[in-house]
């Protein structure tokens, strides 16, 4: 039986999420795994926006910040359940993406990059400076999601690390499923078409502004949910989540792993989350080695790590 690329990707993800814990040397790795999955969700949104639709955002951490702070603020001020706060954050992010995207998605290439960068910085500044609301750079506590206690009541007793590992893993698989549905759908095809040739896409009837806006909004929701999950598992969040470095990290993970492929980008998220852990032996040279690895990948494996590796393997097999 031949698997479609979609089922193959989902199967690989499910197996990885389910079986990786067998190789964990300590409980700490559940935490690392959960971080990889959270980053994986954000980069899946980048794959849709950048890999398929060909639009660049250097400000997506802004949406992660909105998702994260929604989980801190909405329960505290409106006693909203944290799960609903995730939905609220996603809705606000989508709305903001719509508002911001309408004027700036008319820009192309580096202009678009700079405009989105501005948006990210704006959100970051608000989170840092509105101390009365956000408590500024020191951060703010986030309430318990409560799902773990619920599961315990049903007889499934997971440690905190285990719960967040499997919960984020499931969210990532769901996110990947949605993205892969999109890929082969009419919308996904239109996005990839406008990436290939804007002028040709327009002549077959693709409304460029509308399609780009949809991709921007969808990817904003991914980033927002990623930020929410980060806040909820840490039970604490600082404005760093919306910071410039986080935006860059998302794009770097996606490009390093392979921005055209969901599995590739998630692989990139894994690599860039794990690498600093592995590089602790190099101590102060960690950043340098990281930078070097990234440069080498971009020079020699331009499609990204996973697609390049798969191509090599396939070439050998034939």
């Amino acid at each position: 039986m031949k698997l479609t690329p979609k089922s193959a990707t989902l199967l690989v993800l499910a197996v990885l999420v389910a079986l990786s814990p067998l190789f964990f040397p300590s409980g700490y790795y559940y935490r690392v795994g959960a971080l990889i999955f959270v980053n994986g969700i954000a980069v899946t949104g980048i794959v849709i926006l950048t890999g398929w639709a060909g639009q660049i955002s250097l400000g997506h951490a802004g949406f992660a910040g909105i998702g994260a702070y929604a989980c801190a603020l909405a329960p505290a001020h409106w006693s909203l359940h944290p799960a609903l706060a995730v939905v609220l954050g996603a809705a606000i992010s989508a709305l903001l993406a719509w508002l911001v995207g309408r004027p700036i998605l008319r820009l192309r290439g580096y202009y678009l990059g700079v405009a989105t960068l501005g948006f990210g910085i704006l959100v970051s500044m608000v989170l840092n400076n509105e101390r009365d609301l956000t408590r500024g750079p020191d951060g703010i506590e986030v309430p318990e999601l409560g799902l773990r206690a619920l599961l315990k009541g049903w007889g499934l007793d997971l440690s905190n690390g285990q719960f967040w590992y499997f919960f984020c893993g499931l969210c990532l698989i769901a996110g990947a499923w949605l993205a892969l549905n999109l890929y082969n759908s009419p919308t996904g095809r239109a996005l990839r078409a406008l990436h290939g040739s804007e002028v040709a896409a327009r002549t077959v009837g693709v409304d460029l502004a509308r399609m780009k806006l949809q991709a921007f909004m969808i990817s904003a929701v991914y980033a927002s949910v990623s930020g929410s999950l980060l806040a909820l598992q840490n039970k604490f969040i600082t404005p760093d989540v919306a910071g410039f470095m986080h935006s860059i990290e998302m794009v770097t993970m996606a490009v390093l792993g392979g921005v055209g492929s969901v599995l590739g980008a998630i692989f990139g998220a894994g690599a860039l989350t794990l690498l600093p852990q592995a590089l602790t032996v190099f101590a102060e040279y960690e950043q340098m080695v990281l930078g070097l690895v990234m440069m080498l990948v971009m020079i020699f494996l331009r499609e990204g790590l996973l697609p390049s590796i798969l191509r090599k393997l396939r070439g050998r097999g034939e």
């Binding site: 949605l178 549905n181 999109l182 759908s185 009419p186 919308t187 996904g188 095809r189 239109a190 990839r192 078409a193 990436h195 290939g196 040739s197 002028v199 040709a200 896409a201 002549t203 077959v204 009837g205 693709v206 949809q214 969808i218 055209g260």
Partner: peptide, 29 residues
Amino acid sequence: QIFQSMTVLENAIAGYHLQERGPVLADLF
């Protein structure tokens, strides 16, 4: 002006955009 990284079939399907397009949420799910 070909969509280079798409398959030949996908290029032809893209021509049906106006007929095949629909609500983005239906496509996502």
